[in-house]
Design a protein around this nucleic acid. Structure first.
Length: 941
RNA sequence: GCGGAUGUGGUGAAAUUGGUAGACACGCCAGACUUAGGAUCUGGUGCCUCACGGUAUGUAGGUUCGAGUCCUAUCAUCCGCACCA
């Protein structure tokens, strides 16, 4: 480590400078120092135990970082530094999820290439991150939009494309093993996941032409092509994301959006449903997080039942999935999803017009709306009747938007007495309701119980529902009109985007059949374009780059790109070996770093990113590229930092603004005002006038000489002017203060609104800490004396608490403990090195710069980053007596100091002998004495 | 609609997991030092009450010697729901 010129307090020059806590020069100095010495460089070879601490990498948006982002980053940084002090070799990398829609949208509006804006944004992010003093090993940075990175995204995609899921072994295997099976025995033992009704023998397989064979294989591949609906906006000529569609029209321009079927790539994640579910048992995610994933996967047990259609050909059935086969006699009608293939076939001529107009209506409805708006019951009768395969009863077939095509079979058997939505539907359309619950159904609402005795159920009458399911399933299977079925709510994950700014697929189509590009051709680079407009027929912009798309006559490249989660599904593996050009990461590196020990990020990724990356990890593990099948051992969810917006009230039609308390006397418009020109709720009126030209002539109606703003907690966003830039706070108070303040706000997992106000308290704490070392007049005041027992006591209490809290991510209480400790040491005037030195090590993960500075001034040549973490010693904190609260009937009345080793009899005697107690006892006899040793005494009278 | 989370002073919160509610801070009040204070230090600060005391953890019940913590019901707010990342 190069020696840095440091002025100590004893030197005459610069004497004054180091009297005060000058965070700016300290932080700058140490950041430069750490960079120059590569202090955060991490090696893949070490004798130390490893620890992998990872942040969810950010999408580098144009808005830059706001105070919400660093919350998780600071948490993980503290943990990483702490683990390093504890003797671990810690991998703590950072990178950018650099592909994405906003950059492309911005390109569309401004003509700037996404690669350029993304690079600019990354630059801004990096500057902001560097300010806060993180211990990232930047030599391992990844950017998902770089060819050197997405080469491996494409490569992994090809591995997934070239794999199938063997349900017998529950593992992915290379597709050639499946071909061998087909050649030997057809698909008798391997049900086709893409089309269950596909059956062929080995003879048939060998007779198929190549295109047919490839089509069949596509139905097995883990990355596959299928048709699915997208939000199609004719006017914009493009496919829209769900959040670009508002109330059935495009967010931009308000044009109508309809659903359109397009050929798309998918990940067959449903094959992994069970393993994703079981894997949850092996990871340390919060219960709520596991619950969310379980619900998303949505495993249910039930039966698939085929209902014949009256008057239709015998081979046509309405197949339904139900978790309640026991209610089969309660089926009063059937409901198909409006998109169901049978709708066209079974609708009677008389009902055709009704059905058509209903289908038009449904076209305009988003899936979200269809699920959410249940109060409004809609539907249409097809005119057809289905025949209950168990009871033989004929029931009408309806279509309704509350049945979704993507879930189950896209059709349900409706049991209104047991299902509230079915009940509402039946009531609304006057469909008679069969009561199979007897007295358990009141006719006013459905009763979804499983504990009733069946009525009106033919031979099942009198059977408890829980037993009936089994009976019905057996009969269905016996008659071949249904079967036991496990169903998952989870759907295969759409993996195509009709966009430019994403990874190109390494796929070419020859006469419409998909072929993988040779691995040697990777990376398949994204061609540079100037025009970001969509291609014909809703294809992505790449379709316009004809020279890139058309390779040879009849040979076209795939023009879709991969979605945002492609690059993020495996990036944690790349950090282990980021510069490898021969493979995505060497087996040596992934074996060494293995699973991420702690993963920190927001709950918004609860299902999407976490499930996809878990799936990719499982595939790579099955194919033996890595040695573990769960990527993240432990997950910490950081809460959202909400914005706290401020409002001014403009008198309608004027440029006059009235203070909060006076606004009701006027008719006003509420306007967001930049929180950065408001102190608490006091508006800086001068800054307001300068904020925007339109406010230059603003006049104010004040209360008590002040302008008070209204407040509201909202999402932190630029448009609400409630974002707070960490840079400004770091500039004003320093990175150490900022880091500790973010942690002081409350538990990491909890969401809370941002309020800058309290930061002063943390800053004062650091200044107070500084004054333990430096006196304004005397300068450096640390001594080598033996510390007082009180000082050692508070030190060791602090060691114990900080160690525990840091290990458990309880950083808010850790910061409090630092404050308590420093307050106490200041009161004790404790200046001894033996107390202050361990305290600095404890503090180093939280406030690394000030800790490093004082450490250095204490005379250490070696870095505090690798100091030895202090050990807690109980002898210093032992107490001999405890101040017992004495309660009567649970109400604390007085306190008594008693020796801690006193036994219950002694305590009881001492308490009952207390004179002050008399007035509380009101001469009533003590019925019972409850003593909790070392805690409290309670007398019951 | 489904799923998840959160409700404690004026504010952010703490509470060893069933045992003295409000630690630590912000803010506010009073005072000291100071040429000055947006520096620093001291004291106070849940609410009601002059006080004695009473009362208090979204609301309503319950279990318990004892409940912020456990149970039941209920209300409110926030987040996610598959093409934002």
């Amino acid at each position: 480590m190069p020696y840095y010129c440091l002025l100590t307090a004893s030197e005459k020059t610069g004497y004054k400078i180091f009297m005060e806590y000058n965070f700016r020069s300290i932080e700058q100095k140490w950041q430069q120092q750490w960079e120059a010495t590569h202090a955060y460089r991490v090696s893949n070879d070490s004798d130390k135990p490893k620890c992998y601490v990872l942040d969810m990498f950010p999408y580098p948006s144009g808005a830059g970082l706001h105070v919400g982002h660093p919350l998780g980053y600071i948490s993980s940084d503290i943990y990483a530094r702490y683990k390093r002090l504890k003797g671990f070799n810690v991998l703590h990398p950072m990178g950018y999820d650099a592909f994405g829609l906003p950059a492309e949208q911005y390109a569309l509006e401004t003509g700037q290439h996404p690669a350029v804006t993304t690079e600019n944004n990354i630059h801004t992010f990096r500057k902001q991150l560097d300010n806060i003093g993180f211990c990232y090993d930047w030599e391992r940075q990844v950017k998902t939009s770089e060819p050197a990175y997405y080469k491996w995204t494409q490569w992994i995609f090809l591995q997934i494309f070239n794999s199938w899921f063997n349900r017998h072994t529950q593992k992915a295997e290379p597709i050639h093993t499946l071909i061998q099976v087909f050649e030997k025995e057809g698909n008798v033992r391997h049900e086709c996941p893409g089309d269950r009704h596909l059956h062929f023998s080995s003879a048939q397989w060998t007779a198929y032409d190549e295109a047919t064979q490839l089509n069949v294989l596509m139905q097995y591949r883990l990355a596959f092509l299928a048709y699915a609906e997208v939000n199609w906006c004719e006017a914009l000529g493009t496919v829209l994301a769900n959040d670009e569609v508002v109330n059935g029209v495009s967010e931009r321009g308000g044009f109508p959006v309809v659903k359109k079927k397009m050929r798309q790539w998918f990940m067959r994640i449903t094959e992994y449903a069970n393993r994703l579910l079981e894997g949850l048992e092996t990871v340390a995610f919060s219960d709520s997080m596991k619950e969310m994933q379980r619900n998303w996967i949505g495993k249910s047990q039930g039966a698939e039942i085929k209902f014949a259609i009256k008057g239709a050909p015998a081979e046509e059935f309405i197949t339904v999935y139900t978790t309640r086969p026991d209610t089969i006699y309660g089926v009063d009608f059937m409901v198909l999803a409006p998109e169901h293939d049978l709708v066209k076939l079974i609708t009677t001529p008389e009902q055709q017009a009704t059905i058509n107009s209903y289908l038009d209506y449904v076209q305009s409805r988003s899936e979200r709306e269809r699920m959410a708006e249940v109060k409004q019951i809609t539907g249409a009768f097809t005119g057809a009747y289905a025949i209950n395969p168990i009871s033989g009863q004929e029931v009408p077939v309806w279509i309704s938007e509350y049945v979704l095509a993507g879930y189950g079979t896209g059709a349900i058997m409706a049991v209104p007495c047991g299902d509230q939505r079915d009940f509402g539907f039946a009531k609304h359309f006057n469909i008679p309701i069969t009561n199979i619950l007897g007295g358990d159904f009141n006719g006013q609402e459905a009763n979804p119980t499983k504990d009733a005795i069946l009525h009106n159920s033919g031979p099942l009458n009198g059977t408890p529902m829980r037993e009936a399911s089994e009976v019905v399933i057996r009969e269905l299977e016996h008659k071949s009109i249904g079967r036991r079925q496990i169903n998952y709510k989870m759907r295969d994950a759409g993996f195509s985007r009709q966009r430019y700014w994403g990874e190109p697929f390494p796929i070419v189509f020859k006469n419409g059949v998909a072929y993988p590009v040779d691995e040697k051709e990777l990376p398949l680079e994204l061609p540079h374009i100037e025009n970001y407009k969509p291609g014909p027929e809703g294809e992505g912009p790449l379709a316009n780059v004809t020279e890139w798309v058309n390779i040879a006559p009849g040979v076209r490249r795939e023009t879709n790109t991969m979605p945002g989660y492609a690059g993020s599904s495996w990036y944690f593996l790349r950090y282990a070996d980021p510069h490898n050009t021969a493979t995505f990461a060497s087996r040596h590196a992934t074996d060494y770093w293995n699973q991420v020990d702690v993963y920190v990020g927001g709950t918004e990724h609860a299902v999407g990113h976490l499930l996809y990356s878990r799936m990719w990890t499982k595939v790579l593990c099955d194919l033996d590229f890595i040695g573990f099948d769960e990527p993240f051992k432990k997950l910490i969810n950081q809460g959202m930092i909400q914005g706290s917006s401020r409002f001014v009230y403009r008198v309608k039609g004027t440029n006059q603004y009235v203070s909060l308390g006076l606004k009701d006397q006027y008719e006003t418009d509420r306007l967001h005002v930049d929180v950065n020109i408001v102190d608490g709720i006091l508006l800086n009126t001068e800054a307001f006038r300068q904020w925007k030209a339109e406010f230059a002539d603003a006049t104010f109606l004040l209360e008590n000489g002040q302008y008070l703003c209204g407040t509201e907690v909202e999402k932190m966003s630029k448009s609400k002017y409630n974002t707070v830039n960490p840079n400004e706070l770091v500039e004003k108070y320093g990175a150490d203060t900022f880091r500790m303040y973010e942690m002081f706000l409350g538990p990491v997992e909890q969401s809370k609104p941002w309020d800058t106000k309290g930061i002063e308290g943390v800053h004062r704490f650091l200044k107070k800490l500084w004054r333990l070392f430096y006196d304004e007049q005397k300068g450096w005041i640390v001594t080598g004396e033996q510390p007082a027992p009180e000082a050692l006591k508070i030190l060791h209490k602090t060691i114990q608490k900080i160690d525990y809290d840091t290990e458990h991510f309880s950083y808010n209480t850790a910061v409090s403990q630092f404050m308590i400790c420093v307050n106490e040491l200041a009161t004790l005037k404790a200046r001894q090195r033996a107390v202050l030195e361990p305290l600095l090590i404890l503090l180093a993960p939280y406030a690394p710069h000030i800790a490093a500075e004082l450490w250095h001034t204490l005379g250490h040549e070696s870095s505090i980053l690798d100091a030895t973490y202090p050990l807690f010693d109980e002898q210093y904190v032992k107490e001999s007596a405890f101040n017992y609260p004495v309660a009567i009937n649970g109400k604390t009345r007085l306190e008594m100091s008693l020796p801690l080793d006193a036994d219950n009899t002694t305590i009881e005697a001492a308490v009952l002998a207390n004179e002050d107690l008399k007035k509380w006892l009101e001469n009533k006899p003590v019925k019972r004495v409850i003593i909790v040793k070392g805690r409290m005494v309670n007398l019951v009278i």
